[in-house]
Structures are given as C-alpha cells and as structure tokens.
Amino acid sequence: MIELFIGTCMGPNGWSSRSFVYTLQDGEIQYLRGYCNFSAGVGRTGTFIALDILYDQGTDKGSIDVFKCVDELRQRRVNMVQTKRYTTCLPVSIFLTLMSNSGTVSEKNSEDDIYTTAKKTDNKSKNRYDNILAPNEFRPFLLTQVPGCPDYINAVFIPGYLNKFGYILTQTALTSTAVDCCRLVYEQEVKIIVTFQEDGDDDVNILLTHTIPDYLDMSSYLFILIGIYLPEKGSVKLGPFGMTFVADENKRDYIRRGYQLTFQSEKRSVTQLMFKEWPPSSLTPSDPSKMLYFLEEVETLQRQNDDKPILAQCLKDAQRSGLIVVLMDILERLRFDKEVSISLVIRQLKIRRQQIIPNFWSKS
C-alpha cells in the first residue's frame, strides 16, 4: 500500500512545516522508505528531509548539527535546503517539534534559579501573588531611572507568530508599581493596552466593600490594592511620567480610552481597550463571538500602530490576559498557515508564563 501525504503548510516563500513533520512522525512514516517532492526538489524537499533527519538526531542525541546535516545533503544533491530562510528555520522547527512531542520543555534549573530576581527582597512587594512571578529569562528590564525603583516589573514577553516581542503580560498595577507600568509602556513603545473590568472580582471586592479587621495586617492584603496609572478622567503624575486622560468611547463590548503619556518633553498617544463582556467569576468570556469581535478590533488597531507590542493586563496576569494572547496567536497562525495546533501554542506560551490557561491539560 502506498500512502500520499500532501503538505499544504509549506509555501515557496513562507512555510510552517513543523506540524506536517510531526504528523508524519506520529504516522510512523519514519520506518518506511519514502519519496518526497516539492517543485524543484531541492528547496522545500531538502528542508523536509533535513527536518526528518534532525528530528531523529535530536531525539536520539539530545542535540542537532544543522550545518553538518545540510552539508551532507548537498554532497548528494547540489542546492539542497536551497535558501538561507529555510536553513535558519530548521533549528527553530526542530525545537518546537521536539517540545510538542514531550509535552513541555523540561526545566533544567530549579524554580529558585528561574525566579531569582522576582524573589529578591526589594522586589517581593512588586508581585501581586507570590506564586505568579516573572522568570529571569523572559522579563523586561526597566531602564528609566526612578528613585527607589529597581529594573524589575512582574511582566513577561510573549511572542506572536511573526513578532517575538508581540505581547507583554503583566499584572494589574499595585500602588507601588503604577510608575513601573509607565516605565514599561514608555520603554517598550506600547501603543495598545488591553484590560478588563475588575470591579466585580472577588479579590477587589474584599477591599472595596468590606472593612478589614484591625487584627489583620494590612500588608497581607497587598495583592488586592490597585494602583492607578490609567485614570478615568484627569491626569496622574507618577515620578517623571504623566498620564492624561484624553477621551473615551463606549463601544458595544468594550470601552476605548485615549491617553497622552508624557516623559520630560516627549509626548506619546496610548490607547486602552477594556473588554466588558467577561464576568470576573468566570474562566471564559460569556459570549465567544463578542470576544472574537474584540480581538479583531485589537488586531486592526495594532496594524495601524506599526505592530508595536500589545500590553495585556489583568489582576492575576495570566488567566484573562493569557487567554487573549493565546487566541491572538492562534488567529495569526490560521491567517498565515491555514492550520494550527492549539495545544502546541498553549505549551509554547506556558513556558513564559506557567499560569496561562490554568485548566489546560495534556499528556506528557
């Protein structure tokens, strides 16, 4: 019996073959002698063969040698893996494929090593929850000098499909980190901030609607304090930064607010998009169609702002904001590749922020 596999996700100018190779590996085609052909038989064909060889190499040895593999293929057929674009994509694709095959990338370092900066004494007050921290490798470093403020903020870079700095996840500002949010927005040239209505959140309601007993230490309620750096009217002054409310527009499913961020003599426009249709007590939005419409609006605005990183912000920094960036990544992949592995996307992003999609489960 002869089986034909047609790869639809590898075009001549842009490609995403890792899911195709992964499917073939699962289909046990590696035990068969196969015939592979894409057009000229050297570019995509060579890349596919190299991916298969490197996959086995990575599985067996735990490391890959891309240049040796390509060189050996070219000794048998000139121009195999024809362009630099294909060559540079090989290690990334192999890494993602091997990662998806093993569930998540294993952590070689202990948790203490990963979060050393977040756990420093000076930074502990900047974490809303002590179990949601920014790993050293993926956090932004704040460079703007503000007295008494280190370079740490509990935030992580989350890659988009085409932009490795496509999104930033961070917690709703604490009173002690509102100025840090301004530093982050300024330094990363953020033009769009996605937030959620949180006045119905149980954590916030404890502070807003209940009197805290005298016998309880107020510091134990640090995680529910809200710092204001996006005022609903007027302006706020935070260190060397000023944030001034300009105008708002109440849309069907969200509120759009415009702000002017000032630093020294420089002025920048910032837009806040606050999604309204997500009950704080629910893990998911009340109406998925409204969420998709909102994401379309966010994408449109992002394209109008030179694809600068989107700052997604919620109380727990992972659940609602995390779902937003997962969905946007999935939609981006669908738009370019016409297919997507949802579980693979979630696994990739959970490397940066483990609490993203907290009820996600996959076999190891």
Rank of each mutant, 00 (worst) to 15 (best):
D214A: 15
K338C: 11
L301M: 14
S343M: 06
E111A: 09
N79A: 13
L208Y: 15
T284I: 10
I342Q: 09
G43E: 02
Y31V: 00
Y221C: 12
S17R: 00
F138I: 03
M243E: 04
I255A: 05
Y115C: 04
M274S: 10
V298W: 01
L96I: 09
N123M: 04
R252W: 06
F165C: 09
I342G: 03
F165Y: 14
T87G: 07
N79M: 11
I330T: 14
L323H: 12
L169M: 09
K316R: 13
C181M: 11
V81T: 06
D329P: 00
A118K: 02
K191V: 03
T209K: 15
L90K: 02
W278L: 04
F165A: 08
L143M: 11
Q75T: 10
M80N: 03
L162D: 14
G14Q: 12
I212P: 07
Y259Q: 09
K308V: 07
S281M: 11
D307Q: 12
R333E: 14
S125Q: 10
Q319G: 14
K308L: 09
I324Q: 05
L292V: 12
I224L: 13
A178S: 15
R18T: 11
E266K: 14
K316F: 10
M218S: 15
S17T: 05
T300C: 11
A134T: 05
G200C: 09
I310F: 03
T170I: 05
V246R: 10
D113F: 02
G227D: 07
Q313A: 08
D203F: 13
L98P: 01
S110A: 05
P279W: 05
S63Y: 11
L4V: 07
L225A: 12
L32C: 03
G41C: 07
V21P: 00
G11H: 08
A118T: 03
R320M: 12
V105F: 07
R252C: 10
G166M: 06
K237Y: 07
G148E: 06
G234K: 09
G34H: 00
P288G: 09
Y22I: 01
D60G: 01
V70G: 01
G234M: 09
K308H: 11
G160D: 14
I29H: 00
V78R: 13
D248C: 11
Q260F: 04
K120A: 07
R183S: 08
V326C: 15
R74I: 08
N123T: 06
M243T: 04
L162T: 14
E297H: 10
D199K: 14
G239R: 03
Q188N: 14
T104V: 10
L184S: 04
T175H: 07
T59D: 02
T97Q: 02
N131H: 11
